[in-house]
Write a protein that binds this DNA or RNA. Sequence first.
RNA 1: GAGCCCGUAGCUCAGUCGGUAGAGCACUUGACUUUUAAUCAAGGUGUCGUGGGUUCGAUUCCCACCGGGCUCACCA
Length: 503
Amino acid sequence: MPEERDDHERGEHAKDNQFRRARLEKLEGLHELGIDAYPHRFTRNAMAAEIDARHATLAPGEVTEDHVAVAGRIRANRNNGMFIDLHDASGKIQIFSHKDFLAAEQLPLLRLLDLGDIIGVEGIVRRTPRGELTVNAQRITVLSKALLPLPEKFHGLADIETRYRQRYLDLIMNDESRATLRKRSQVIAAFRRYLAARDYLEVETPMLHTIAGGASAKPFVTHHNALDMDLYLRIAPELHLKRLIVGGLSDRVFEINRCFRNEGLSPRHNPEFTSLELYEAFADFTDMMDLAENLVRYAAMAACGTTAVSYGGTTIDLASPWPRRSMASLVEEKTGIDFLAIETAAAAVEMAQGLGADLKPGASWGHALEAAFAHTVEAGLIQPTHVTDFPRDISPLAKSHRNGDPRLVERFETYVNGWEIANAFSELTDPRDQLARFEAQMEERERGDDEAQMLDADFVTALEYGLPPTGGLGIGIDRLVMLLTDSPSIRDVIAFPTMRRKG
RNA sequence: GAGCCCGUAGCUCAGUCGGUAGAGCACUUGACUUUUAAUCAAGGUGUCGUGGGUUCGAUUCCCACCGGGCUCACCA
């Protein structure tokens, strides 16, 4: 296995085929013309879209005096190179290469260009009689000779595995893939803008944890050699962010970064995923509901220009106030069963199992309610809904509910399209309660639940120095971007999704 | 982890009820020259995912493996 990896890393993957050989011969031809096929830089003064905007009203057949220098990839070639479609990051511009305009010594170069080559072109802008905005090339500069052919131009790259493994090809070929990843960037930029404007401080907390806390999930384990110590890739930044609130670094902090969970892959799960987590002192979970709605609306406007987004043919309305429904009431509405009226865990488990939920024997009341919710309600929450009032025993970091029911905490998850996209609490600030919750988690762990949370004694110590009342919110950025880009798989919104090593 | 489906040319895909394969684009050569998936003519595309088995013969049937997709499980 290591030898196979070496082969791959040495770059012996390139196919030695007719296409590559033909291009290597052309590369040789460029050398013979004294041309460096991989120069160091090129000064351009215009992007395709700019030129397009600048000459939007130019009539067919008209020639301008606009001398431009553009650069991009050759994506189409008509009439033996006379017409080239040059694509840059902004769009497309046609290049007209004709001996009437092109420097004479450059004519041999035309025969050595291929689809996929990156070139710079200097010349005058005109609109052809057929109406296509065009640069009459006076000088062409090879900026990077492509040795491998691009996928077919009409159907593009369809093979989903290649699209994920060789994302560069997907991005060259598929407009939608570029649009999706650009929107992802816009969503994240919008979050930063929105939060920065409200005095949130962006911080960075460790990726390498000695205790994988802040969520219930299986961690990745790695090893630090010098310290001879195992470390976990973080499953959540939560406990460190709250330590920063304890310290008063800021009353409002946020972090946008990766979390890692060593669990199954699915169209909605990637082992590394990106979350926004934020904490606001003196706020509670109802403040977090408002904030979640405002953040998502703001990001949708920034990325899509609308708060009415279409996913899989369904229109999702992000604009209207999002209903706030307690988990138990949603289950009761769906099943007629009021879990709040069920006293014992055993009875609740039996009831949940009767609804078809899969529960381990000995599961708690809270696990039973949550299982009943997941089995009967979750998938039907298409329009945004805040599901509130979670069970205490599945929420070890959330504060007890002020409504007085000791089984509940002040926590909500926001569901859209049947997916959890946000999770928030009135943060648990009572150190003795926190310790008790951790101890309960450790007991679950000892009973075999390897996703129960680990006890973080230093975090309890931090709470003992005093955490102000605090609201916390996490938003799953990948799923939100899926929603905003109508993407069927989380892999569509992650540039380089986790893939098995190809045998 | 389980079930179902998929893997054929650089790409998009056909196909072989078992006799080692085809189209379009791309590529090469030529023609044409203000094109728009340019057009026309000619030409070669290939471990049919990998390894075994059955068979006179396997890309095709069987088994295992590799990779991928979906569903379920897991994943608040």
